[in-house]
């Protein structure tokens, strides 16, 4: 489903190498964790995938589509196939949980009926049906991240990309968030997650790609956190 072909990324005109000769595939419905120290190139890798940044060399394919040959005007359509979750949640503070999720659907041009139907379902899926009218400031970190996940899945994307989703969370919230991501994966969505958290990786027992200094140094089908 996703195919990185000899991808490299060099910043500052050759001064620093963020990615070097990255080649791997992700099959549909996989749950892939990418681990590595800070600066190992995890976030750069994800940026390539959502076409936020272009590779210096190599190609990234989504199914048969070369992501970096998509014209700018078509990028929004491509990005709708991908749901994103970030460490800092990126929720809009002046909108309620419901409105935050509805906003993503509005931006995608969904009808009001669809919105009224799907938003509560998405919140149900992340166990936040009772916090539907709360503002982000009234939610805990874990709850905020669950709202962010609900927003990421509400448009039924093919892939969920989660960049350090548990980075700001306590162990219990971390556990909950990972369980939700697992549930989403079980429902048929590919999940790509970067993390530092050894416990999360070891408990998941799914594929782990380990990166160091812009290279893939391990790729285990049911890996452990080894660094």
């Amino acid at each position: 489903m996703i195919y990185f072909d000899k991808v490299s990324k060099i910043y500052n005109g050759g001064q620093s190498t963020a990615l070097e000769d990255i080649t791997f595939q992700i099959a549909p419905n996989e749950f892939v964790s990418i681990v590595g120290h800070s600066g190992a190139g995890k976030t750069t890798l994800l940026k390539m995938l959502i076409a936020e940044d272009r590779p210096s060399g190599g190609d990234v394919f989504f199914e048969s589509l070369n992501i970096h040959s998509i014209p700018k005007s078509r990028l929004p359509q491509y990005r709708r196939k991908i749901g994103t979750v970030f460490q800092d949640f990126k929720l809009l503070p002046h909108k309620t949980a419901y409105e935050n999720i509805a906003f993503a659907m509005e931006a995608n041009g969904r009808t009001d009926t669809e919105i009224a139907e799907n938003v509560p379902q998405a919140l149900e899926l992340v166990d936040l049906a009772d916090k539907i009218w709360n503002f982000p400031s009234e939610l805990s970190g874990g709850e905020k991240q669950r709202v962010a996940i609900a927003r990421a899945i509400v448009n039924q994307p093919d892939i969920i990309i989660a960049d350090e989703p548990t980075g700001n969370l306590d162990p219990i919230a971390t556990y909950e968030v990972v369980q939700i991501l697992k549930k989403i994966n079980d429902l048929g969505t590919t999940v790509i997650m970067t993390t530092h958290n050894k416990g999360v990786i070891d408990a998941l027992e799914r594929r782990v790609i380990t990166m160091d200094e812009g290279r893939i140094i391990r790729d285990d089908a049911a890996g452990k956190y080894v660094l």
Partner: peptide, 9 residues
Amino acid sequence: VMRLVGASN
């Protein structure tokens, strides 16, 4: 956030 969720320009 709008760009992230795929809103058109």
